[in-house]
């Protein structure tokens, strides 16, 4: 029984680590500010959730588990709020999000392909 709980906790911790690293890669790799914000969302929601759930399996039914789940709830409520505040203040500062429409996207993709083939 306890071994099963250990394995579950291990799985959740590794998944959480994986998602947080993916978010970190995304925040470096994605091209402009508004798409980087989505990558920040990955680490803030699923990375944090999996890590805390993995720790919850370690804690068992104790006061520590209640504290951990309150921290998780708080993170899940506040991180979208600050994300929205960031987006709104970026828009009102005059930062335009780069959009690629459907017809425009095919053109840029073709141009990209030419570039990559040339290189």
């Amino acid at each position: 029984m306890s071994i099963a709980i250990e394995i579950l906790s291990w799985i959740f911790l590794v998944l959480g680590s994986l998602f947080s690293i993916i978010g970190g890669i995304g925040i470096v790799r994605l091209p402009e500010f508004f798409s980087r914000m989505h990558a920040g969302g990955v680490t803030d929601t699923l990375g944090a959730t999996f890590l805390v759930v993995g720790l919850l399996f370690q804690a068992g039914f104790t006061l520590v588990a209640v504290k951990l789940s309150m921290i998780l709830l708080f993170l899940l409520i506040t991180s979208p709020t600050s994300c929205h505040a960031l987006a709104k203040s970026a828009i009102s500062e005059g930062l335009k999000p780069a959009l690629d429409n459907a017809d425009h996207a095919s053109k840029t993709k073709a141009a990209d392909r030419d570039l990559s083939e040339g290189a």
Partner: peptide, 17 residues
């Protein structure tokens, strides 16, 4: 500036974890 603020926010969340 907003990229830096976003990275700072993420850094803070990671610190909590």
């Amino acid at each position: 500036v907003f990229d830096r603020v976003l990275a700072l926010n993420m850094f803070g969340t990671k610190t909590v974890l």
